[in-house]
Nucleic acid binder design. Structure first.
Lengths: 112, 112
DNA sequence: CTGTATCCATGATGATACTG
DNA sequence: CAGTATCATCATGGATACAG
């Protein structure tokens, strides 16, 4: 954890791991929407339109496997709830950086 | 730039912009290799094996369009050099975060 | 509402050969 | 060495219908 001396290969591997978890068209948008308070399947879908149920279902499963979201089923009445896990908060610095960089990049490219 | 009050839609848009620029299997590995001192087409290819010339060529063009790498042609002898642009340094905080997160995530998933 | 099942379109990547 | 051209393959995501 304190070892900053990673080889290039290791750096590449870790970056690819990260990309693998968060890339794709929808994963981060879904997480952002969920952080905004959406927790029902339908609510999430509406927030991240135009995602289809098939894709949303798949993405939520991936996120669950990566321990970023938690799926809870309640009986009586039967409902399903998705919530971001505590671990998901560890993504915040990364996402914030991405927002910042993307915002700046848009200026850089279109403005110039 | 000081305006932190972005809407969810804006955040999603900027994140997607960023993902679009850096995602794909090779872009970040290429940039990392270039930061390690590779500047010739062939050197880069060897560092990021097993990328093909076709894909590397395409990726370098994309990166050039996004002003992250600079392609320079010299005569006498005719050589082509790729270098990371100064602007590319703006990606460092993001990449560092990705390395850090990926490293931790591997522990989280495999260790648990 | 919360999904799953099919089928399909597209883009991204790979293999290989070839050119200046 | 620095690419381009072609063709093949595969992963991603979309459309639609349908099930519990």
């Amino acid at each position: 954890m304190k070892d900053k001396e990673l080889t290039t290969e290791q750096k590449i591997k870790y970056v690819q791991d990260t990309l693998f978890v968060i890339s794709g068209k929808w994963k981060l948008p879904i997480l952002i929407a969920m952080n905004q308070g959406c927790y029902r399947f339908r609510d999430i879908q509406r927030s991240v339109l135009p995602i289809t149920t098939r894709v949303l279902s798949r993405e939520l499963k991936d996120l669950e496997e990566n321990k970023l979201v938690i799926r809870t089923v309640y009986d009586a009445p039967k409902t399903v709830e998705y919530t971001v896990s505590p671990y998901c908060k560890s993504l915040k610095p990364l996402v914030d950086e991405m927002i910042k960089w993307g915002q700046n990049h848009r200026r850089k490219i279109s403005g110039k």
